[in-house]
Design a protein around this nucleic acid. Structure first.
Lengths: 219, 219
DNA sequence: GCTGACATGTAACCCGTTACATGATTCC
DNA sequence: GGAATCATGTAACGGGTTACATGTCAGC
């Protein structure tokens, strides 16, 4: 149900077409949401029907006509009601972490390969976010006017940057960990009746683990 | 499409019923995925039809009969193929961050209230995760056997803990930021034709911003 | 007597993704 | 000549959530 509020939130500050909204979902809003045009257009239709937004048609030559949407008072009220309602419990869906947690089923070399590939992807995302961030920063500094909206979107930007940086760092650390423990993979390819002494003990790698967890275990 | 692999991944190590799987999705796997029983049962049916898993019926007295599922070779192969396939680009959906980015529309006091509520939620999640983590840690230490599976799930646990800790810290820092800038909200309740001098300048709060971003802006 | 754990499922609905459909202009 | 941008949408499908449906046993 959040696409609705993503649209209302954006329209609470600027008028926009469906196409504009899509760009915003690919740009700044990509920090917390994404959507396809084929979902945005019908949603705009529904929101207009329920009178949360109004549209006005702008004929263009050479290009297709634009339908510019604006928020209504009813729409703004709906947005505010949502903003004041209790925040939803986070429901994480991270298919890469799922892959990682089952990667004892593939060779250590492949694990490292996958971690490196993902790290690269996140580095690209970070670079894109930094770019967005720097552009905004400069335009804000030029106009030299401070608003609460700028404060809140800056907070969101910080969260986005932090998240990427930490994920990248985790990839790096985990690659190192797997590299230094790759012997575990040759061990446990199911020769299940080896004598006890043949197994690597947990106590052998415990110091390495403590280092990997850092101060996360305290408390 | 990841529920399928969540199930196959779990069954690659242990046999389980639909009910067991649900518990696992609420427990350890909640770090990266969640699912409802009403989705798990039909999915198990499909996986069995496609011969990725097999079931055996265990009659019970007093309790309903159990249907215990086990992975087949074909299923294990399917899992491995997925594990080796390129990791998906992350598609974040964080409705709380969406709320935050539009919170210039509600009073600063309400912003702080929402941030505190969310911080509490994440603290509870962290406490739960630490609990899961400590239980596992102890049982691993007792058995004193190291396996690659333990290494990978430990990496996932670290990611989960980190994520929570950092989100909580962000909430704390952002509450402070909003508190020290709450004057912005009284300013911009749309008295749009105030003389220029009445506005808070960006340059006035820039030092505060630099502190809030820390070393995130550096390249 | 009621809640919660155990155990399995179906049905309706909503949300989100991929594919299809159109058509001009600009840049390489 | 082909890809990318601007601009709008529909249709089919798949995945995920909520509600419905059933029934026993243990513990408070």
């Amino acid at each position: 149900m959040s696409l609705k509020y993503g649209i209302l939130g954006f329209l609470s500050k600027w008028e926009a077409t469906g196409y504009d909204l899509k760009k915003e979902f690919d740009d700044f809003m990509s920090i917390f949401w994404h959507s396809h045009l084929s979902q945005i257009y019908p949603e705009l239709g529904r929101l207009e029907q329920e009178e949360y937004i109004t549209s006005c048609l702008l004929p263009q030559t050479g290009k297709p006509d634009k339908k510019i949407y604006a928020i209504t008072d009813k729409g703004k009220q709906e947005l505010i009601t949502w903003l004041l309602s209790p925040p939803e419990a986070p429901k994480l869906k991270d298919s890469f972490l799922m892959q990682v947690s089952f990667m004892d089923n593939i060779p250590a070399s492949e694990v490292i390969f996958q971690l490196k590939a993902y790290q690269k992807e996140r580095e690209q995302r970070l670079a894109k976010m930094k770019h967005i961030f720097q552009e905004r920063w400069e335009s804000i500094r030029e106009r030299n006017v401070m608003k609460s909206r700028i404060l809140m979107s800056s907070a969101v930007v910080r969260r986005g940057l932090e998240q990427e940086i930490q994920y990248i760092r985790w990839c790096r650390d985990t690659i190192e960990l797997v590299e230094s423990c790759s012997a575990l993979w040759s061990q446990d390819t199911d020769k299940s009746d080896l004598p006890e002494g043949e197994y690597i003990r947990f106590s052998d790698v415990e110091p390495l683990f403590r280092k990997y967890y850092g101060n996360l275990m305290e408390d």
